[in-house]
């Protein structure tokens, strides 16, 4: 039996176009896409801020430094090639997420909190 598994990528980038090192042509358009995550200060987590093109990880980090941290936005940068990010498919959103909509009891909103407890 021939089962075809369809892969989805972040931003729906087709497999054959996302891997810069897989197809090596020498134009700028073939630089692969990278997703950039910036930690804005120590103790916080890295947040996705956007994407950019670069020839390799080193260049991606430097490009991210120039594109995303020039106004003191960060203290640490992560980069990951976009093709390695797997994503849910938009058409599956119904079965994945909608069942949670009518299950409000999963929110901890039915407890009476003592007055002393703030910030819940």
């Amino acid at each position: 039996m021939n089962i075809q598994i369809k892969k989805y990528f972040y931003g729906d980038i087709p497999d054959d176009k996302s891997g810069g090192n897989i197809i090596s042509k020498e134009t700028k358009n073939d630089w692969p896409l990278w997703e950039i995550f910036i930690r804005s200060k120590q103790g916080l987590d890295h947040k996705h801020v956007g994407s950019l093109h670069a020839a390799d990880a080193q260049m991606a980090i430097e490009n991210a430094r120039d594109v995303y941290t020039r106004r003191m936005e960060g203290v640490s940068i992560w980069v990951v090639q976009s093709k390695y990010i797997h994503a849910t498919a938009p058409e599956e959103a119904g079965e994945l997420f909608e069942p949670a909509e009518d299950k409000i009891y999963r929110h901890p909103t039915f407890y009476k909190l003592p007055d002393e407890v703030n910030q819940m």
Binding site: K28, L52, H53, N63, V67, R70
Partner: peptide, 8 residues
């Protein structure tokens, strides 16, 4: 040559 290097 590319946007990112233009900024750099």
């Amino acid at each position: 040559p590319v946007l990112e290097q233009d900024i750099a």
